[in-house]
């Protein structure tokens, strides 16, 4: 059964208005920049903040305090109880909800085994590594078989190498979890890998939602475009010409009409010291305003009409002897440009 949530939280200088529907077994990622209201939304769902209106087909949770809600939460820094063993941490929710000790311990043991920590039952949280603590926190949240699982930046506290493995483990557990999952994150990769659907929150409002594939292909805000690494413009199309709102004109391959979003990957952009001759339909002059070395490419930030990001090879950088302030020619094939209605 679908879980519907209407969250309305108003505080000085901030308003959160978020409607969510989560299907059973579905993982929804709430993605947004810092201060967008992601954590506020999670706390409202958990019953730690007033102002949530939540119903399932069976009941509404509005009047329920946190301890009465069928939820499980994995907090950003896990918040494992330091005075209890890993097993007692996992069994805590069951004991609090009235399960007898022996049975609670058995279920907790099962969950610790599920996350691969069977032999750490007696360990105190401070002796666990970050990844282990995260898995205990997940086991603790899942042990009570909650209807709604809330994950608050579950990977943010981990170092890069641990994150990779923990993320794939988490993905596996979420796949098997039959309830509703909401994942709050500011990391697009977490959202892409773990979520079935992404809801993008900016300034307390939903600006876009869809499958990871849709979001990646057709970002609707600068923030999303930046996250997925695309050049992003708003413009008005007339056939194969798009006049961009912030200046400049692009020629596209597939004709369109009216207000559109325009995207293309930085890797589609080529840079030349002189005006190139030949096939590309879009060429314009731009000034280098920033150079940033990535793993195998160099990202060049160019001010011009329009401004553009270009990913070029290190060989090209050497050949052009790029310096900020250099004037270059930007070239872009019309077939690389993707447009979709606003």
């Amino acid at each position: 059964m679908t879980l519907h949530a209407e969250l309305r939280v108003h505080r000085a200088g901030f308003a959160l208005e978020l409607d969510l529907a989560i299907e059973p077994g579905e993982v929804v990622a709430l993605l947004g920049p810092n201060g967008a209201g992601k954590t506020t939304a999670l706390r409202a769902l958990a019953g730690l903040l007033p102002g949530s209106h939540i119903r399932t087909e069976e009941s509404t949770w509005d009047k329920l305090p946190a301890e009465k809600r069928p939820i499980g939460v994995v907090f950003q820094d896990y918040l494992l109880f330091a005075t209890m063993s890993a097993l007692d941490n996992v069994a805590f929710g069951l004991r609090a909800r009235g399960t007898r000790k022996a049975e609670a311990n058995e279920i907790a043991r099962h969950w610790l085994a599920q996350v691969g920590l069977a032999e750490f039952a007696k360990a105190k949280p401070r002796t666990l590594s970050g990844g282990q603590a995260q898995r205990v926190a997940l086991a603790r949240a899942l042990a009570t078989s909650p209807e709604l699982l809330l994950l608050d930046e579950p990977l943010a506290a981990l170092d890069a190498s641990t994150r990779l493995r923990v993320r794939s483990d988490l993905g596996r557990h979420l796949q098997h979890y039959p309830g509703h999952t909401l994942l709050v994150t500011h990391d697009p990769l977490d959202a892409m890998v773990l979520a079935d659907r992404i809801v993008i929150l900016e300034d307390g409002r939903v600006v876009q939602q869809g499958t990871p594939r849709e979001v990646v292909r057709q970002p609707r805000t600068d923030y999303v475009a930046h996250l997925v690494g695309l050049n992003f413009y708003r413009g008005v199309a007339e056939g194969t010409e798009v006049r961009l709102d912030d200046g400049g004109t692009l020629t596209i391959a597939e004709p369109a009409q009216g207000p559109v979003h325009v995207v293309f990957p930085p890797s589609a952009v080529s840079l030349y010291p002189d005006k190139p001759a030949g096939s590309p339909r879009n060429t314009w002059q731009a000034i280098v305003s920033g150079i940033e070395q990535h793993a195998h490419t160099t990202r060049v930030d160019l001010a011009g009409n329009p401004a553009v990001l270009a990913d070029i090879t290190t060989a090209t950088v050497a050949e052009l002897r790029l310096q900020p302030g250099d004037t270059l020619w930007v070239s872009l094939k019309a077939t690389e440009i993707h447009t979709y209605p606003r």
């Binding site: 958990a46 019953g47 730690l48 305090p65 946190a66 301890e67 009465k68 809600r69 939820i71 499980g72 939460v73 907090f75 918040l79 109880f81 805590f92 929710g93 609090a96 909800r97 603790r140 009570t144 809330l150």
Partner: peptide, 12 residues
């Protein structure tokens, strides 16, 4: 926040 964590686990 540990008290909040306990609340989300159903503890009075």
């Amino acid at each position: 926040r540990y008290e909040e964590a306990a609340a989300t686990l159903g503890a009075s």
